[in-house]
Amino acid sequence: MKPMDLQELEKRFQEKIDKEIKIEPNDWMPDEYRKTLIRQISQHAHSEIVGMLPEGNWITRAPNLRRKAVLLAKVQDEAGHGLYLYSSVETLGADREETIDDLHSGKAKYSSIFNYPAVTWADIGTIGWLVDGAAIMNQVALCRCSYGPYARGMVKICKEESFHQRQGFESLVTLCNGTPTQKAMAQDAMNRFWWPALMMFGPSDDESPNSAQSMKWKIKRFSNDELRQSFVDATVPQAEILGLTIPDPNLKWNEETGHYDFSPINWDEFWQVVNGNGPCNKERIEARTKAKEEGMWVREAAMAYAEKRALKKTA
């Protein structure tokens, strides 16, 4: 392609984006737009799938049948969300199996929150409330992403997610109105998950070099810091209703800005966890790799059976 053609194509592409026209799989798009989306959507898919692990561990330990049925439905949803996203990444020409292998080799990342363990039952409620709450804040913004298949997947995911946060909050309401030990368990979960939940929005805007381009392409609609602030503003009153203390001595309402101020985030911890040194990184990847390798014979058998039956039909 001549360089002039490329320039013209890029110009027309940006005009479409500016006019809020969605980009669909077979439309022309800059290589970098495609690459950014493949990276972002596949990492989003991996997060849904890895996110099943800390919660799945509690399905057999849920305190009663109602909570068990709810948790099972939630974990099943996460699997579904992972599948919508893998399908969506395939529309960009990415190979599904390759993206999964990239997760297992450590080349592709996933949300660092899932590298923290869920050690008590209160963690399950807290994950629903804070972790899904933060995810929803992010995903609602992504419903307006310029790439059609990703935006449509997000609409479906957001509809389904709204019960995830509510069930977590409801579970915490029960604990916080329970015995002092139950309340203490909820506070302990809050203490451990608050900061990792804030880190889910990613590095500060001035440390996030790709953000400007993603905003220009309308892959992102709000910056990491804007979304983080919205999450804090929405969550503080909810913590008050629960009677839980947010583990930040500097958290206070700022009349002037109309937002809550909060302490700086420990980015060393964030990067340590992203780079593989969190409490559960190794365990999570081992579990995913094992699932793929040990399930391989089932997939091969299903394929062989389908081929055999197809042959019989034509014979």
Binding site: G80, S87, T91, P149, A302, M303, Y305, R309
Partner: peptide, 19 residues
């Protein structure tokens, strides 16, 4: 509504129902 992977039509229908 979207796509999925399956070895044959029967399992594609089952998976589509679940997904």
């Amino acid at each position: 509504v979207g796509s999925l992977r399956a070895p044959d039509a029967t399992l594609a229908l089952d998976n589509a129902r679940d997904v």
